[in-house]
């Protein structure tokens, strides 16, 4: 998305035709229905506002905005929102809270001592373990690097811009890390953990603001580079 490379048209994601919900996308025959696409009779239609993407016979719409929907394996930044004797409720920025059972906490926690271990407002780095039929999710803190975040700062971008933040082959995030001298972890829920000197954090936040405001328009990498240089 958004790469300003040579354009040879098909399949490269270079197509930036904007489609709106309900818009006809041509006959459905022999075409695969991808994300953001539906059927109306023998026609394909867009079901979301976004950019049309045709790869081979698959037609999809890359939405301009999307809510975060958890998938197993996602690395996410969460906030403890509440707890019972043996579980925590975690705000992971999805349409509903996730659950962190005591057994998946980073260390040994006694029954009834969840609050002593991690109180409301604590920021954690966790991984989505499972998502059930009705989208309830369970997160875990057992695993490499998963932990309570005691320092640093969390900023947020809409999750559909995550791809822009990482950039092609991680180029954008690398550029941000180098220019700011900060540690940055990009959660798949659009929350970024940033740790470093306040100037560095500020620089990253300014860049993220730019990405939030202009991430949908081409030429983003150049603009962010310009900001970091200035």
């Amino acid at each position: 998305m958004g790469e300003d490379g040579a354009s040879d048209g098909r399949g490269s994601g270079r197509d930036i035709k904007l489609v709106v919900p309900g818009e006809a996308l041509g006959p459905a025959a022999d075409r695969i229905v991808g994300h953001g696409v539906g059927r109306r009779g023998d026609q394909l239609i867009a079901t979301r506002l976004g950019h049309l993407c045709e790869q081979g016979s698959e037609v999809s719409v890359v939405p301009v905005k999307t809510a975060y929907m958890p998938r197993p394996g996602d690395l996410v930044v969460g906030y403890i929102e509440g707890m019972r004797a043996n579980i925590w409720f975690i705000d992971i920025g999805a349409p509903f809270n996730a659950i962190l059972p005591m057994s998946l906490a980073p260390g040994k926690v006694d029954y009834g001592a969840t609050r002593d271990a991690m109180d409301v407002g604590t920021t954690i780095l966790c991984r989505v373990q499972e998502v059930d039929e009705s989208h309830s999710s369970v997160v875990t803190m057992k695993g490499m690097g998963l932990r309570k975040l005691n320092s640093g700062f969390v900023d947020q971008v809409p999750p559909h811009l995550n791809a822009q933040i990482i950039g092609s082959k991680g180029s954008m995030i690398q550029m941000l890390k180098e220019a700011s001298d900060c540690r940055i972890i990009v959660g798949q829920n659009g929350r970024l953990w940033i740790e470093g000197e306040p100037e560095g954090v500020r620089l990253v936040r300014d860049a993220l603001k730019m990405i939030r405001e202009t991430g949908h328009a081409p030429g983003l990498a150049g603009r962010v580079q310009g900001l970091l240089d200035s």
């Binding site: 309900g22 239609i45 079901t47 979301r48 506002l49 976004g50 939405p63 905005k65």
Partner: peptide, 11 residues
């Protein structure tokens, strides 16, 4: 709704 990225079959 379209701007929010909510899936719809038409506007």
């Amino acid at each position: 709704l379209a701007d929010a990225g909510i899936p719809m079959t038409d506007m």
